[in-house]
């Protein structure tokens, strides 16, 4: 096919039938391309209607005053100005969310990694332990929230009751306490997050580490930590990167858990960015300001992702074949 295309035109013009054959080839190619577009057309249409269109619309709304019932009116940078310089809750919720991300993401990833290491070792009833670790991650977010509200209930909850019965010790108010609410939510997120699909992916990654490498390490007399640090970690670093990127994107959008358990309280202790955005856009119906908040978050996520990808060149190791 390539040889035919590279044939000089003067020569091909002289041969009867070559032109026809050539156009038949490109017709096949054209048909293939057309069919390809047809197959992906659901996504193209959906992308335009449900992603790209709304994306641009919210960018436009972010420069307008738009109280839903009237048409948007252009106000320039006023919404951004309000967010950065006037809205105290904006900064408060931003820092709360950042704190949430820098605690839950590393703890979750490290937790999943060590759980995978633990469950990868030959131990009796291994499958049973794996299921025990994995079950919490299947609990729907709202169900997990309701469940933990009950477990951490200050007066009759099982945690505080057990503390009292066994140690005669009054536990904290957990989700009802301004200083304990955020740590409580972190505990809940680790409960659903550690044994999740992430742990399964780490397990798969660990099983993909060639045994020869560990054997070679044994010969060199490396200890447990050196083995993890210099053999396991480099080999699963692509998985780590993916989890880090997706984990941060997810953590910055945290909503349901806090909305159901604390509603953002007490005293704004768990008032995350998503809650502020929801209240702005869907309780006060200030669509313009809500869109500005959304675009600020989007920009932060883009920047953080690009930083992580460019930093990753220093620590992510791709074995010879990227597919493996």
């Amino acid at each position: 096919m390539t040889t035919r295309e590279s044939t000089p035109p003067t020569f091909s013009a002289r041969l009867p039938g070559t032109r026809a054959a050539h156009s038949r080839m490109s017709a096949t190619r054209r048909r293939e391309a057309l069919q390809g577009f047809l197959y992906i057309s659901p996504w193209i249409i959906g992308f335009i209607i449900f992603v790209a269109g709304p994306l641009l619309a919210s960018l436009y709304y972010s420069f307008t005053y738009y109280p839903l019932l009237t048409k948007p009116t252009w106000v320039g940078l006023q919404n951004y100005n309000t967010a950065f310089f006037k809205d105290r809750i904006f900064w408060l919720s931003s820092w709360r969310t950042l704190l949430w991300a820098i605690t839950t993401v590393p703890l979750g990833i490290i937790g999943s990694f060590f759980a995978a290491l633990l469950l990868n070792r030959a131990v009796r009833l291994k499958t049973v332990w794996r299921v025990f670790f994995f079950l919490p991650s299947l609990t729907p977010e709202v169900a997990a929230a309701i469940l933990w509200l009950w477990i951490l209930q200050p007066d009759v909850g099982v945690v505080n009751n057990t503390l009292k019965a066994w140690f005669g010790f009054r536990g904290p108010n957990w989700l009802a306490s301004p200083s304990w609410a955020l740590p409580s939510l972190i505990i809940i997120s680790l409960w659903t997050g550690i044994g999740s699909i992430r742990m399964l992916i780490f397990l798969a990654g660990l099983q993909g580490v060639p045994q020869e490498l560990y054997d070679a390490g044994m010969v060199d007399g490396v200890n447990w930590w050196q083995r993890i640090r210099h053999i396991t970690l480099p080999l699963i670093s692509p998985t780590l990167l993916l989890n880090l990127v997706l984990g941060i994107i997810g953590a910055l959008q945290v909503f349901g858990l806090a909305f159901v358990t604390t509603g953002g309280g007490p005293a704004y202790a768990t008032y995350f960015y998503g809650l502020h955005l929801y209240e702005t856009a869907f309780r006060s119906f200030d669509m313009g300001y809500g869109s500005a908040l959304a675009w600020f978050l989007f920009t932060i996520i883009l920047v953080l992702t690009l930083i992580q990808i460019s930093l990753s060149r220093r620590w992510v190791y791709y074995a010879g074949d990227a597919k493996d």
Partner: peptide, 16 residues
């Protein structure tokens, strides 16, 4: 699309 926060499209989707 995996990277995009839901919030950035949900307001126009709601109005639509």
């Amino acid at each position: 699309g995996l990277m995009m926060p839901v919030y950035v499209t949900i307001i126009p989707l709601f109005t639509m």
